[in-house]
Amino acid sequence: MDVFMKGLSKAKEGVVAAAEKTKQGVAEAAGKTKEGVLYVGSKTKEGVVHGVATVAEKTKEQVTNVGGAVVTGVTAVAQKTVEGAGSIAAATGFVKKDQLGKNEEGAPQEGILEDMPVDPDNEAYEMPSEEGYQDYEPEA
């Protein structure tokens, strides 16, 4: 019985440690998101679009440190934060509304985080759909 109880105690310690790591990862992701939003706020009209992409990228980098179902929630929060940063930029006159959601080359930025393969159960990952990809044929 002692062996059984000791095993359960060790398992509990492992769960607590994993929860603490997840909590730490979420806190880091939130900190990076805040950094990115402050970065966007300090940019001029020309830099705002690039700044919004930076927020998304920093958040995406930190999301990889967070495991399990938390990833889905962090990704949703990050996307809403990026959308909010863009709205703030438009409201303050840093950028025109028609410039939001495009990178410096004018290509749409939507789907940055949505296409990231995420499995809350950590069982399997699927690649994003290939609808947006084109076949590449090298020139002879």
Rank of each mutant, 00 (worst) to 15 (best):
M1E: 01
D2S: 04
V3T: 01
F4N: 00
M5A: 02
M5G: 02
G7Q: 10
L8T: 00
L8Q: 00
L8Y: 06
S9K: 13
S9Q: 06
S9F: 15
K10A: 09
K10P: 00
A11V: 15
E13G: 06
V15R: 00
V15Y: 09
V16K: 01
A17H: 01
A17E: 08
A17D: 14
A18C: 13
E20A: 07
E20W: 15
E20T: 09
K21L: 09
T22G: 07
T22N: 01
K23F: 14
Q24P: 15
A27P: 00
A27Y: 14
A27W: 11
E28I: 08
E28T: 10
A29G: 03
A29H: 04
G31Q: 04
G31V: 05
G31H: 05
T33M: 11
E35K: 07
G36L: 02
V37A: 11
Y39D: 12
Y39V: 09
Y39W: 11
Y39F: 11
Y39Q: 06
V40I: 01
V40P: 00
G41Y: 07
G41A: 00
S42K: 10
S42T: 07
K43T: 10
T44F: 05
T44H: 04
T44S: 13
E46S: 05
E46K: 13
G47R: 08
G47A: 15
V48I: 14
V49Y: 04
H50N: 13
G51K: 10
G51S: 12
V52D: 01
A53W: 03
T54Y: 12
V55T: 07
V55L: 10
V55R: 02
E57D: 05
E57I: 03
K58W: 02
K58A: 10
T59R: 02
K60T: 06
K60A: 10
E61Y: 07
E61Q: 10
Q62W: 06
Q62K: 08
Q62V: 12
Q62G: 00
V63S: 02
V63L: 10
N65W: 15
N65P: 03
V66S: 01
V66Q: 02
V70R: 01
V71D: 02
V71S: 04
T72V: 09
V74L: 14
T75M: 15
A76L: 06
V77S: 02
V77K: 03
V77N: 03
V77E: 01
A78C: 15
Q79F: 05
Q79H: 02
Q79A: 05
K80E: 03
K80N: 15
T81A: 15
V82E: 05
V82S: 06
G84V: 04
G84Y: 06
G84D: 07
A85I: 13
A85E: 06
A85H: 01
G86C: 08
G86P: 03
G86T: 07
G86F: 14
S87W: 02
S87V: 03
I88C: 05
I88L: 13
A90C: 10
A91N: 14
A91Q: 10
A91P: 14
T92Y: 04
T92G: 06
G93R: 06
F94H: 05
F94D: 06
F94V: 09
K96Y: 14
K96C: 13
K96A: 14
K97S: 10
D98R: 07
D98L: 11
Q99G: 09
Q99K: 09
Q99S: 15
Q99R: 00
L100T: 11
L100R: 01
L100P: 01
G101S: 14
N103D: 11
N103R: 11
E105R: 06
E105C: 05
G106C: 13
A107S: 04
A107Q: 10
Q109R: 03
Q109L: 10
Q109D: 09
E110L: 01
E110F: 06
E110W: 15
I112P: 05
L113P: 03
L113G: 12
E114Q: 00
D115Y: 05
D115R: 10
P117H: 04
P117R: 05
V118E: 07
P120S: 09
A124P: 12
A124S: 12
A124I: 03
A124F: 09
Y125D: 13
M127I: 07
M127G: 05
P128I: 09
P128F: 09
E130S: 14
E130A: 11
E130D: 07
G132H: 05
Y133T: 09
Q134D: 13
Q134A: 06
D135W: 08
D135Y: 15
D135A: 03
D135C: 08
Y136R: 09
Y136M: 10
Y136E: 11
E137V: 10
P138R: 07
A140R: 08
A140I: 05
A140S: 12
